[in-house]
């Protein structure tokens, strides 16, 4: 394997690591405008009667 192939592999590995790290830290970006981790965090922290950032945002835009 030549040097340029190794370089490309290293860049690819770095990009994959960066993406996974970002998902680990903040959660997957989502079509609702926030990210999954924000939803899960809210969901975990609040009582069953409460809403979440995503749902309230979506509802706000709806009604």
């Amino acid at each position: 394997m030549n040097a340029s192939s190794i370089l490309i592999l290293v860049i690819l590995a770095a990009l994959v690591s960066l993406a996974l790290w970002r998902v680990w830290k903040k959660g997957a970006p989502c079509e609702c405008g926030t990210n999954c981790k924000a939803c899960l965090k809210n969901c975990k922290n609040h009582s069953s009667a409460s809403g979440c950032s995503c749902s309230s945002q979506a509802k706000d835009s709806l009604i």
């Binding site: 999954c36 069953s48 945002q57």
Partner: peptide, 22 residues
């Protein structure tokens, strides 16, 4: 049905929007 309309964007907030149902 409100959560279901929300769900057209993403299922996660749709499931959460169901919390408004007592």
């Amino acid at each position: 049905f409100i959560p279901m309309i929300v769900g057209k964007g993403c299922g996660v907030p749709a499931v959460m929007a169901a919390r408004t149902i007592e």
